[in-house]
Structure formats: C-alpha cells, structure tokens
C-alpha cells in the first residue's frame, strides 16, 4: 500500500514521458481501434485497484496484459465486459468504448454486451452439462439458433474453430467435465466463440494447463485473431511475446507502459518494465 501511494504521485508524469519517448509502431497504429479505455479508475470498497488507465486495443490483434499478480490486470479485463457489475463493492469511473460506444452508458444492456465480448477464465469452468449443451448454451439463451439442425451446425462449427471437433465429435453427450484440462479450456473457448463475439477476453487461460495443452491454446489464439479481437492476461512473458502483437504492463494498479510487443520486450522505456521482464521482481 505504501508502494502504491508512492507511485501515485510520480507515475502519471513518468507515464506521459514514457509514451512520448516510445511511439507506437506502424503496424499497431494503423489498425482500427476496437476498444478504447480512457482514465479508468476501479475501487473495491476503499481499495483503489486501478488508477487512470488509458489504453487502445486494436482490432483483429492479440493484446497482452502483463504484470505482477494483484496489479489489476484481471480487474481491468473484467471491466471490458462489465463482469465487475457482479461484484457488489466494485465501483468504476472513467470511460470504456467499444466501436466508439460507451459500454457503461445507460442505454447499453449488459446481457447484449457480454454476448459481443466473450470471456475465458483462468480455471476451465465447463458447465455441469454435456459437451454439446455447453456449446449450445450461449446461442440458445441469445436466441441465435432455431431448431435442432441449426444448433447442431453451430456446435460443430464452434468446436471446429476451437480445434476440438476431432477429439470430441463421438462423445458430445458426455459431460464437459469429463474432458482433460486442456480440452476443457478449449471447450470454454469454443463456448465463447459460439455466440460470435467480437472481442474475446482471456484471463490467464493457460495457467492451469501443462506445456503441451498450453501450446495448443497458443496456436488457437493465433488462429482466432483473424476473426476476433483478443485480449489476454498472462503471467508468462514468453507467452505474451509469442502470441501478442501489443503488450501493456501493469504495476500496482497503474498502466506503466504499453506498445508494440517487440518493443516492450526488447526495448522497454520504463525502469519498472525493464525490471519486470528481466525477472527482477514479480
């Protein structure tokens, strides 16, 4: 807490300086912006968890959030599909826009918002239903499918896009929990894809998985970015380097540095970023 108080004073200035010194590379800059956050502050009761976060998330790219645990990565991620609404003590200030519409505006309906912004969690959390029903759940509640054949097609398409079809096509009636950890996580990704979202948020999707399963998910993420905008929180810097095009570094609730992934990892501007990626803390 004393650390946080200290950085509260000097960070904004430093951040501005850092951003000026490190202009975003062409590749990232040229793309249309899908999500734009401006001066976002989040409080859990009296705990000021996020401080003045401002960031643009480019469309059809993978953006990675890195930082030591407890720094507010998940909190920020959950702001983007308003999952924080489910936490009573959570209060959010600032503006988050998707396609230039403020998602915290009164006219926005969270249920529809979340259909457009899907989420995959740290621990695979398949519903206690069959594999088929896990996928069909979203399309059904949103009225996207009519009739059995429609649903069958949707389920097959989603599983195929998540690269899971070959493994489960003969056991669609089995419970989702009967799959292995990695398969469960891909099932959760397929479940998210099934409602055709525009943005997919992933909160440390591989932290509960073994290296092989992790590799498969990383491949999948790379494929998915052609159709979706992906934001991923990760603990592993190698993973961020492998899958993302843009990286943002959080520290003690502050967005310290953001930019082209290559630049962040090879030429970080801020001292704290440097310390973190060289493994001096975290």
């Amino acid at each position: 807490m004393t650390d946080a108080a200290m950085s509260e004073d000097n960070t904004p200035k430093e951040l501005e300086a850092a951003l000026e010194k490190a202009p975003e590379t062409e590749a990232v800059k040229a793309l249309p912006i899908k999500v734009r956050a401006t001066d976002v502050n989040v409080f859990y009761g009296d705990n000021h968890a996020l401080k003045d976060v401002t960031i643009d998330i480019p469309e059809h790219r993978v953006t990675a959030f890195i930082g030591p645990s407890g720094c507010g990565k998940s909190t920020f991620l959950r702001c983007i599909n308003r999952m924080n609404d489910t936490i009573d003590i959570c209060r959010i200030e600032g503006k988050i826009e998707i396609d230039d519409r403020d998602i915290y505006d009164r006219s926005i309906d969270v249920v529809q918002l979340r259909a457009k912004v899907g989420m995959v969690f740290q621990k695979p959390n398949p519903f206690p239903k069959s594999i088929y029903d896990n996928i069909a759940y979203g399309p059904r509640i949103h009225g996207m499918v009519a009739g059995k054949t429609d649903t069958d097609e949707m389920v097959e398409a989603s599983l195929k896009r998540a690269g899971l079809w070959a493994e489960v096509k003969d056991r669609l009636a089995q419970p989702g929990t009967s799959l292995s950890g990695g398969q469960q996580q891909r099932l959760c990704i397929a479940r998210a894809i099934a409602v055709s979202p525009q943005v997919i948020l992933m909160d440390e999707p591989c932290s509960a998985l073994d290296p092989i399963a992790t590799a498969r998910i990383e491949e999948l993420i790379d494929e998915l970015r052609r159709n979706f905008t992906i934001v991923i929180v990760t603990h592993s810097m190698q993973q961020a380097a492998r899958v993302s095009q843009k990286t943002a570094f959080f520290h003690l609730g502050v967005l310290v540095e953001q930019g082209n992934t290559e630049q962040i990892f090879t030429n970080p501007v801020d001292k704290r970023t440097q310390d973190y990626i060289t493994g001096r803390f975290g």
Binding site: M83, A115, F121, F127, G138
Partner: peptide, 17 residues
C-alpha cells in the same frame, strides 16, 4: 463455485438463466 456463475454471466446470460 463462483467460476460457474462467472462463466455463465460472461456468456451474457441473465441471472435467472
């Protein structure tokens, strides 16, 4: 577990769903 609720809310389900 809360994670199941989160999973469902994140799909855009209402509370009663």
């Amino acid at each position: 577990p809360q994670s199941l609720r989160d999973g469902s809310f994140a799909m855009g389900a209402t509370h009663s769903e």
